[in-house]
Nucleic acid binder design. Structure first.
Length: 261
DNA sequence: ATGGTCGGTCCCCGA
């Protein structure tokens, strides 16, 4: 069972790249972020034609998340609980029916960027993380197979970026953000990639600007967080750098894990 | 080499 996450930076602009990667990588589930379309414009038929059902929480121009799955999707939850007035489409959750008595619960998360730090964008990020911590607590009580994956916009440690000096004053690396990410992890979640890898300076995002990709100036901000029940089945987790090097690439590249299921 | 990015869109904003 292979589960992947990918911030595609527009599902419309990236459709050929996504279709090609699905064909090559054959994930059972793909969590998408920054689809940048309203629900009606999500290319569900294109994905359906290669065997994927979809659940979508779209938004015009900005944000937007979705879940693609080969297996049936049930129990779709739209939006992160805790703020009825939040209008940004950054969270979708569903159950994937693996067999008649086994379910996998997955969420596709596009955590706010939070820059610039002195603005309400940063406090929105903090509040959003606290809502996520609170919701994750509720989910973990179910003791199910759960994967909370997506673009967290969090650099967990200095080892996960090319230059800690630059990033420690950025909303992606600030201590308040890292500590809340650790609080989330400490609820009992396993960050899949780091749990299996000791390498440093391995990234999932490279800015379009200033030749960041060519210079390997990246950050590791896309994560798969596993409940204990899922972590027990974790076999492998990798970052697939290939899509980032292709033409018309997203600035993020897919991260995937395999569960013994 | 004093400029070097995308995508979506209320031609500037968000990343």
């Amino acid at each position: 069972m292979k589960i992947a996450t990918w911030n595609v930076n527009s599902v419309k602009a990236r459709l050929p790249n996504i279709i090609e990667w699905l064909r090559l990588a054959q994930p059972d589930v793909l969590l998408l972020q920054e689809i940048k379309v309203i629900d009606e414009n999500f290319p569900s038929f294109d994905f359906q034609s290669i065997g994927y059902s979809s659940a979508v929480h779209g938004q015009k121009a900005y944000n937007g998340v979705a879940i693609l799955s080969k297996k049936p999707i049930t129990e779709i939850r739209i939006g992160l609980p805790g703020d009825e007035k939040d209008e940004q489409s950054r969270y979708i959750e569903c159950c994937i029916n693996l067999s008649k008595n086994i379910n996998l619960r997955v969420a596709s998360i596009y955590l706010p960027n939070g820059n610039p730090v002195e603005t309400d964008k940063f406090s929105y990020k903090i509040r959003w993380m606290e809502r996520l911590i609170s919701h994750a607590k509720t989910l973990l009580e179910k003791e199910e197979l759960i994967i909370l994956g997506g673009d967290y916009n969090v650099i967990p440690s200095d080892y996960d970026c090319y230059d800690p000096i630059i990033w420690k004053d950025d909303a992606l690396g600030r201590p308040e953000i890292r500590s809340r990410f650790r609080t989330l992890i400490n609820l009992g979640l396993t960050e899949a990639w780091r749990s299996l890898h000791r390498e440093t300076h391995v990234y999932s995002f490279w800015d379009y600007q200033a030749g960041a990709w060519q210079k390997d100036n990246g950050v590791r901000i896309d994560h798969l967080l596993l409940s204990p029940q899922a972590a027990d089945l974790l076999e492998n987790c990798e970052i697939d750098k290939n899509p980032r090097g292709q033409k018309k690439a997203s600035d993020h590249t897919p991260v995937w894990c395999e569960l013994r299921l």
